[in-house]
Simulated assay, not measured.
Amino acid sequence: MISSDIWLPAALLAGLFQAWRTALQQRLRSQLSVSGAGFVRYVYGAPIAAAMTALYMYVEGLLVSALPPSFLALSMAGGLAQVLATALLIMGFDGRGFVAGTAFSKTEALQAAIFSFLVLDERLSPIAWVGVLIGVTGVLSLALGGAKQSNVFASLGKRGALYGILAGSLFALTGVLVKHATELLPGTDPVAAALVTLTTVMVFQTAMHGAWLMARDPATLRKVVKTWRSSSLVGVLAAVGSACWFTGFATAPVALVRIVGQVEVVFTLAFAHFVLRERLRSHEVIGLLLVGLAVILALTGSRP
């Protein structure tokens, strides 16, 4: 059920900020390990998330009440799922390049539709389901690099594809867990619930990932500090982008938000073409058109 129209601009902005942040993380791979490139989004993003939450609560005259243990458990689980998904996504960049690594993870829209139905009993209209399938077809067109039908299964068996698909599963699970967590908070302001959940999740992520790095890879922690100029921007974009995602999840079905959020692929191609100097090919144009059609169908299917 859609509780506020804010979900649509939130989903569109989430796609923009995520594409921007992912592009910067890809460039950080020359300076940091996979784990380090993922960690910067939490350690530099958590203070931004806390500041946004405090500012919103102050402006709206709201107070944060006691957080239920079940909320904390779901936030921790969602945070861990997102940490693992981000690591897999960055690892997937080495498999078939920046665009393909992101595109493979976009199967999360279909996976989110299935997970949210099974866990949250969220139901999509038939038109929205068609949009999901067309959207997945579009992102796979991007990911498979224009491969012939006979080579599709072989392409899906490659490392980059597997990392991307697994990342999509964990991102889809993250959305479901975050949605469930926001529902456990008292109050009726969905944006406040989203921001409180975001801050809680990012604090857990910083603690969990930071503890692992401190024990297993302290050199990466030092590099994260040394690269603060570029790394902190990743953190800002991660916090703002996640605030948009979480707001979308709090106000609309998870799968619907993920379908619209597939416009990230459009922004990703723009970053890849203009910033990373990757060529735009015919199969990528076809994929973009399919993703656009998927978003239109999803919006049509969301109308009462």
Rank of each mutant, 00 (worst) to 15 (best):
F117P: 00
R277D: 12
V136M: 11
V130S: 12
S282E: 15
I165G: 11
A51H: 03
Q31F: 06
S105T: 10
E108V: 06
L166K: 10
A54P: 01
L256H: 06
Y56S: 06
G160P: 04
Y163A: 13
P126H: 05
H273S: 11
R123N: 03
V130N: 10
G146F: 09
F249L: 11
F274P: 10
D217L: 13
P186M: 05
V43F: 06
R216W: 09
I6L: 15
V191D: 03
L237G: 04
Q26K: 05
A23Q: 05
T300N: 06
H180T: 12
W245P: 01
P190W: 03
G261P: 00
T137W: 03
F246V: 06
H180I: 00
S30E: 10
G301R: 07
H180V: 01
M91C: 00
S35T: 10
A100T: 05
V203C: 07
S141P: 02
R27P: 00
A255C: 13
L84C: 09
I165A: 13
T268E: 12
A192Y: 02
T206I: 01
S231W: 01
G157E: 11
A23R: 02
A73F: 14
T174Q: 13
A85K: 08
I2Q: 14
E284A: 14
R21I: 02
L213M: 09
W20Q: 14
E284K: 09
M52S: 01
L276G: 13
A37G: 11
P304K: 07
S65L: 11
D217C: 06
M52C: 05
F249I: 04
M202Y: 15
P304A: 11
G36W: 05
Q262V: 06
A238I: 09
K148I: 01
P304L: 04
A219I: 13
G301W: 02
L55C: 09
L213R: 08
A73W: 12
T268C: 08
V191E: 00
A46H: 04
E122H: 12
T188W: 01
V132Q: 04
L280Y: 10
V136Q: 00
F171D: 09
G292D: 00
V83D: 04
Y42F: 14
I90N: 08
L63F: 07
Q262D: 07
V99F: 06
P253N: 15
Q18P: 00
T197H: 07
W212D: 12
E122F: 12
A54K: 13
I296E: 04
T206W: 00
L72P: 05
S230D: 11
V234I: 02
R21Q: 15
G164R: 11
T251I: 09
L233Y: 09
L62A: 06
K223C: 01
R21M: 13
A128I: 07
D189A: 00
L72K: 08
T199S: 10
L221Y: 08
V203Q: 04
S141Y: 06
V83A: 09
Y58S: 15
R21E: 13
A10C: 13
R279M: 14
G235E: 14
